[in-house]
């Protein structure tokens, strides 16, 4: 194997493999850059919400999709990120550029601890364990003086140095940069040693161990990384909404994230992004529809609040039944169809 092969390995390992991907990505970036000038404030706020969800979904997919560890407590890590940054900036006056990474690290630290039982617990038991963790976090947030329970807590505006991220537009760009960074880092992780260890553990843990992969280290690491992503997402959410209550991080948020990665495709980066966009978009879309039909059917308004969770549940079940690989599976089939025509094998 001579040196000239290395050039092709590098190509083979490239982040964006084909010209098409690069073209589409450029178009996407262009559209995102223009979005604040083309969309209403409300529409922009939906995109911000989606961007934050992308970060959280990437984290959960690394844990559940790639490493095969089910978590029903992802919402709790967002809560930890949100409250950590809220308290650090509010009570301690720490600048946002410090509280942001610290909120991720705080969540990661707790994620590592939650990960320890995962060495013993698998499948349903792990799901129950993480669910319990979610309830504990919610309970603490409700009852701890500092977090002010269901009265909620005000969160300061995000500011970088002297620049206060005040406008919708500024926050949009800010979140998009983070979402893109999160996606690239996740992609890098999964195309390197770390990601292969995760998938190996998911597919065959005993064989993985016999291939020299330390199970404990990587299982716990997956929890840590996943929680870090969740913490960052939570922090961005807190400083955007500027008002946080424990109720917005309850089990329904965790289920929304499960719905995102299942709908998008377990164990895929693109799937995490697509799933986050759709699941975040669906309630808004339904609100829009019910608004349109409000005149003729007044009973419809308010429906969305009650049925959001049910809709997510339905999406999970239907996806698992009819397209277990999620949207990414559909994407892959379409791509394969075009690939077989005419030259590519």
């Amino acid at each position: 194997m001579g040196g000239n092969f290395k050039v092709s390995y590098r190509e083979d390992m490239a982040l964006f493999q084909t010209l098409w991907v690069k073209v589409w990505l450029s178009i996407l970036i262009l559209l995102l850059l223009l979005a604040p000038y083309l969309l209403s404030r409300y529409q922009l706020s939906i995109l911000i919400e989606m961007g934050i969800a992308v970060i959280g979904a990437l984290g959960l997919n690394l844990l559940t999709g790639y490493t095969g560890q089910i978590s029903l407590g992802h919402g709790a890590f967002l809560a930890i990120g949100a409250y950590t940054s809220g308290l650090l900036t509010g009570k301690l006056g720490l600048p946002f550029f410090l509280s942001l990474p610290l909120s991720g690290l705080m969540a990661a630290g707790l994620g590592l601890i939650v990960g320890i039982p995962s060495l013993r617990l698998k499948g349903l038991y792990l799901a129950l364990g993480t669910l319990a963790f979610g309830f504990i976090v919610e309970y603490i947030l409700f009852h701890w003086d500092l977090t002010q329970g269901d009265m909620g807590m005000a969160v300061k505006r995000a500011r970088l140095g002297d620049f206060v991220i005040k406008t919708e537009k500024a926050y949009f760009y800010f979140v998009m940069i983070f979402a893109a960074g999160a996606a690239i880092c996740a992609k890098n992780l999964v195309r390197s040693k770390i990601g292969r260890c995760f998938v190996a553990i998911r597919d065959r843990d005993i064989a993985a161990e016999a291939m020299g992969i330390p199970l404990a280290k990587y299982k716990i690491m997956a929890f840590g990384i996943s929680a870090f992503y969740g913490g960052i997402a939570g922090c961005l959410m807190a400083h955007y909404q500027r008002w946080i209550v424990p109720g917005s991080f309850d089990i329904s948020l965790s289920i929304a994230y499960i719905a995102m990665i299942i709908l998008g495709g377990l164990g895929t980066i693109l799937g995490s992004v697509l799933g986050a966009i759709l699941i975040t978009g669906i309630p808004h879309w339904i609100t829009y529809l019910t608004d349109v039909f409000k005149e003729s059917y007044p009973a419809l308004s308010g429906l969305i609040v009650d049925f959001k969770l049910g809709i997510f549940g339905l999406i999970i079940v239907l996806t698992l039944l009819f397209e277990p690989q999620g949207l990414f599976g559909i994407y892959r089939r379409v791509r394969l169809y075009w690939k077989t025509w005419p030259y590519k094998y």
């Binding site: 292969r196 597919d203 065959r204 064989a207």
Partner: peptide, 10 residues
């Protein structure tokens, strides 16, 4: 391994 224990998703 005797019974194939490959990482099936890879």
């Amino acid at each position: 391994f005797q019974n194939i224990e490959l990482f099936r998703g890879m």
